[in-house]
Write a protein that binds this DNA or RNA. Structure first.
Lengths: 84, 84
DNA sequence: AGAGTATTTAGATATTTGTCTAAATAACTA
DNA sequence: TAGTTATTTAGACAAATATCTAAATACTCT
């Protein structure tokens, strides 16, 4: 739960997640969408991956990232317990 | 959205929110539940309040805090857009 | 094998954050 | 009014975080 909230507590990472909702993208394509260096984006991707919010797959020299929506169930359930 | 994720990105604050789900509590009662100084708890309450997750009402010399679940709608909606 | 491209790792740095103690503010009580 | 209790504000500090550049790794292609 901690890693999930931590991962989403950053505007850049939330935007990455929103991008990946539309379609899978490789690291370079993701980085293009931001005015942030590639190493920084790589770091954000790592945090999202540790939180299980995204998965990655090596495709030749590219690394393709995909959204993993199943983990969001946990988040929704936590929130719903608060709303009774 | 930013302040909401920031507010929830802390174990102590999430526990405060869970406590307030059960019943309204004043600042001192909340602080009793943690091994953290009262000023620190006061700071956490301030962050939760800025995120609109809780409200406060002065009652004599006490300040009573309540959970505001309506703001959680925004959070759920954001998550649901990701799940399509 | 060597050059070029994609991505990550390492190390540095400035900012943010959670915590503390001490002091200030506010309200009750004798 | 003076003392006590409840809470917040102020200021300091260590740890965490987002970012950068430079270098390393991994893959492609001629």
């Amino acid at each position: 739960m901690n890693s999930l909230f931590k991962a989403l507590n950053d505007e850049t990472r939330r935007k990455i997640v929103e991008l990946l909702k539309k379609k899978d993208m490789n690291a370079g394509e993701i980085a293009e969408q931001f005015n942030i260096s590639k190493p920084s984006i790589s770091h954000h991707l790592d945090i999202l991956k540790r939180a299980d919010l995204i998965t990655s797959e090596k495709k030749g020299q590219f690394v393709e990232y995909s959204l993993n929506t199943s983990i969001l169930e946990d988040l929704i359930n936590w929130i719903l317990t608060l709303k009774k």
